[in-house]
């Protein structure tokens, strides 16, 4: 299927000389949730801002559902809803007015029933006549999301949506994201909470220093880069690893009380049974064992570290 957003050789150099994006190529699939991970200053917001028309690219092309973002900006932008990172909201307007403003701005006729539904879904209906400046930070975040949805976008960008957001809103938000996805909306989110990406996303893109390091299905990424570890708590501490065990990738920790075996989940043959047999032969007893899989966070940290 044709990608809903197609980014080709995208470059951005700011007037200050900062090269924020360097030959970015990325296809975003229709209907997926794509999480963009990257450290601060990696270029996530620049990338989103270019697609949405807020920042002018220095080179390359972006097409949104077949519309070029520069030559056919109307077609492209009408498809997109953006929830920015900053809490930039109008000050004196009421929630209701700002919603209708957003919808009109995106070229859609008034639809009070729809606005009401969005406000109700985001628990904002009671606040509809309140001036935005009187709302709490979490409520303002909800207003930004509601505004982005007011024109029924096919693509939703969420730039750090859960930064400084309480548990309840975060839960509401993810529920809404799942519903939107079920209705066919493509969602691109950036986040610092990697466990969120791990939980929500279909695919993960890692961006660092203005370059896309990798884009993979989440499961593939976890498999490919995830490592499993088997930890054995020993009966008696070891001073050194016996030479017979040198062929295994083993580490001693916890003052010789813990033996850690790292293995590759991709391999057919993990070598666990041989290792255990060998330990038995050497008379090394253990009282406990457990295995663990590396989290996306560890994968991410390793990826970014390898790059730099």
């Amino acid at each position: 299927m044709e990608p809903i957003i197609s980014i080709k050789d995208l470059n951005k150099k700011y007037d200050s000389g900062l090269k924020a994006l360097n030959n970015v190529n990325l296809d975003i699939h229709r209907g997926e949730i794509l999480a963009l991970l990257g450290p601060n200053g990696a270029g996530k917001t620049t990338l989103i801002s270019i697609i949405c028309g807020i920042v002018t690219p220095s080179g390359g092309t972006v097409s949104v559902d077949g519309h070029d973002i520069l030559t056919d900006f109307r077609g492209a932008r009408a498809k997109i809803g953006l929830v920015p990172q900053e809490l930039s909201t109008a000050t004196f307007e009421s929630v209701w007015d700002t919603m209708n403003f957003s919808r009109g701005l995106f070229g859609k006729p008034t639809n009070h029933a729809l606005i009401e539904k969005i406000l109700r879904d985001l628990s904002l209906w009671d606040k509809r006549d309140k001036r935005i400046m009187t709302l709490s930070g979490g409520m303002k975040r909800r207003v930004l999301i509601a505004k982005a949805l007011s024109h029924e976008p096919k693509i939703l960008f969420l730039d750090e949506p859960t930064a400084g957001v309480d548990v309840e809103l975060r839960r509401d938000m993810w529920k809404m994201v799942q519903e939107l996805r079920a209705s066919g909306v493509t969602i691109i989110l950036t986040t610092h909470y990697i466990e969120e990406a791990e939980e929500m996303a279909d695919r993960i893109g890692v961006i660092n220093k203005g370059e896309i390091i990798m884009v993979e299905d989440k499961d593939v990424l976890m498999d490919k880069l995830g490592k499993k570890q088997l930890s054995l708590t020993l009966q008696n501490p070891l001073d050194d690893l016996p030479a017979e065990l040198s062929e295994y990738s083993l580490d001693l920790s916890n003052e010789g009380n813990m033996l850690i075996y790292t293995f590759d989940t991709q391999k057919e043959h993990t070598g666990i049974s041989e290792l255990l047999r060998q330990l038995d032969k050497l008379g090394i007893d253990f009282k406990d064992l457990h295995s663990s899989e590396s989290s996306l966070e560890e994968i991410f940290v390793n990826l970014v570290r390898d790059e730099s």
Binding site: P84, S88, S102
Partner: peptide
């Protein structure tokens, strides 16, 4: 000044 210009810049208005 308030940053709300983002919405106008990202909207399909010329």
């Amino acid at each position: 000044f308030s940053g709300t210009i983002y919405e106008i810049l990202s909207a399909p208005v010329s």
